[in-house]
Design a protein around this nucleic acid. Structure first.
Lengths: 225, 225
DNA sequence: GTTTCTTTGTCAGGATTGTGTCAGGAAAAT
DNA sequence: ATTTTCCTGACACAATCCTGACAAAGAAAC
């Protein structure tokens, strides 16, 4: 994070906007929109490195905004952090399904906010080259190869895609429907439990690295860096 | 960027065309069209390494031109930079969705223009001269000959093109549609399985080198270095 | 602490899909 | 006209995937 990052704030409450703006001052510039239907245009124009997205918005619902961003190729990979009321757990799950990277429940402390933001920004920006994780896991999308400590893994197509999804954003939780959507390009109307079965094979082949693949009970799976 | 690049300019305003032509002089030659319905033919004929595409065109809309190019396999991967009025945000979004690589809003400065162009061009340099791989495979695009341990191979046109694609990026996985797009310059609406059949012939002629041609089940093929 | 309910791990077979291969005819090159 | 190359369709075989069932592990209720 050598240069200044740019963060887009989509939030209708001026008070919260100010809080956010002040919180990130020091390591990021901001651009703002207060209506959901202005959000996509703002993101396309400004190409922020992160989007803070309130779920309760006038004009267009936050979840819809999230989906729009993910469907627009030029900005589809922009990280999104949702801001949501503590109670709306259902929205959280749906938001994650829709491709949000993380969520923060209101009210939030400045410390938590900054920590989450930095955690998201600190990720390798969707680079093309091979992704390398600490403990020696290497995943290369171009050659579709994966290796642990230089030792290549014989993964099936689905297993590789599964691993690729998790590796794309280490630490982020993926729900089963979300994983299925990535693993089988099209909808094929498949039981969610299929993911578990795939995970068995993947974990087996990962050997001791399998310990990094965490099950988040009630939600899905994630990779711990 | 060792050699001179070729840039296609699709723009109806003669004044802007001149500005563009002068701006890129020094590192690129140009070919031009003023009508949208001439654009695809120009691109197919000239095979430019970049297309500058105005969105407001007589004959055929710029967005349509963009889509046509992306749908024509032989030139589908040509980078496209859109030229658009600042206000037309909707068009920008749709253009990016349609596969454009970048956009520049009018009026633009010469510096921005050149920076964007060079950024786009500065990618996969298709190297020239014979390519040599470790185990003794030699592929020379110029003379269209290939040899294993100095022993020339009698490849058909398609077989050579197929090998050339794989050799261009050893290790990278190519899907069948991708391979077809390269092997048959024009779109010919051919079954994907044709690639398999070609691969049979290629592998046979490669002899023991065939072991380096890997099948990635469910995806395509790849060369192992 | 025990019971009950939900969620996940695991496995084995059957269904599905992908690939190697070939032969024959169309298309192109000579 | 002859030869070469290309494409299609079919078949067999193999890899992989999905389902359904049960066991195990947590979480919640009592």
């Amino acid at each position: 994070m050598s240069a200044m990052e740019k963060i887009a704030i989509i939030e209708d409450d001026p008070g919260i906007r100010t809080v956010l703006r002040l919180a990130v001052r020091g390591f990021a510039t901001v651009c703002e929109a207060e209506r959901g239907d202005e959000a996509l245009a703002l993101v396309v124009r400004e190409r922020p490195s992160l989007v803070l997205l309130d779920l309760m918005l006038p004009g267009l619902d936050g979840l819809e905004v999230c989906r729009e961003i993910r469907r627009t190729p030029s900005v589809a990979s922009t990280p999104i952090i949702m801001l949501t009321a503590k109670s709306a757990e259902e929205d959280i799950v749906r938001g994650l399904e829709m491709g949000a990277d993380d969520y923060i429940t209101k009210p939030f402390s400045k410390a938590v906010l900054i920590a989450r933001i930095k955690a998201v920004l600190r990720r390798p920006a969707s680079a093309q080259g091979p992704v390398r994780l600490l403990s020696g896991l290497t995943v290369d999308e171009a050659s579709r190869t994966a290796a642990v400590d230089g030792h290549p893994l014989a993964l099936t197509r689905s297993e590789f895609d599964l691993l690729a999804v998790l590796v794309a954003r280490p630490g982020r939780v993926y729900t089963r429907p979300q994983i299925l959507a990535h693993v089988q390009g099209e909808e094929k109307d498949v039981t969610e439990r299929t993911v578990d079965t795939l995970m068995v094979g993947l974990r087996r082949k990962l050997g001791e690295w399998a310990a990094h693949v965490e099950t988040i009970r009630g939600i899905g799976y994630r990779l711990t860096p």
